[in-house]
Amino acid sequence: MKDAGHLFRFAGLFVVAFLVFLVVRGYVVPKTFGQYGHYRGAAIGEIAQHPVKFAGHQTCEGCHSDIADTKTKGAHAHVNCEACHGALYQNLPAPPPPKGNLYERFVALIVPPPPPAPPILLHADDPATVTPVKPDTLVLCARCHTASAAKPKGFPQVDPTQHMGGVPCETCHNPHSPAIGSDTSASPAAGGAK
């Protein structure tokens, strides 16, 4: 056995190298890597944290139930609010980046992390601060209803230059229920959504 000492010393070196490998690996590989597969499991939760900008028609209908009622009777019943009004949000100032521990700060020096997404304030959360801009119907309506041979045949289409001659669409049509002669009580002119 006295001649085998050098083998044990050599094996000890391997053990030390393996332990060093485990330490380095423990620091370098993210904690959730491999949780669901060959990727960082925590990434799924991070992607799910992105701010929402389109609040969804259910949110709008919570306050604007009169317009929702008007819409259900017309051809635009299934056109969601934000399809025309757009996403009603406002970017807030970005928060300072998190400080992190020594290792994370060291990594941030080498690979600067992407700036954090600015927080979002929705019209539904603060109706006074985030106010919608009234869409220009001459542009908005024409986007969908300008006649083109490429559009489905059953879809209502007009030639904007001949149909109204520059008169805004809402003069005759209530955008929320566009058939002429339909209920106009929720039209902008009658004090509905502006």
């Binding site: 799910a48 701010p51 056109v79 934000e82």
Partner: peptide, 22 residues
């Protein structure tokens, strides 16, 4: 991302929300 931040909150995607014809 199939608007993963929306569908995990019970909302539909932004493109579906904005599509006027379904």
């Amino acid at each position: 991302t199939l608007c993963y931040h929306r569908i995990t909150k019970g909302l539909t995607t932004a493109c579906c929300e904005a599509c006027p014809t379904g």
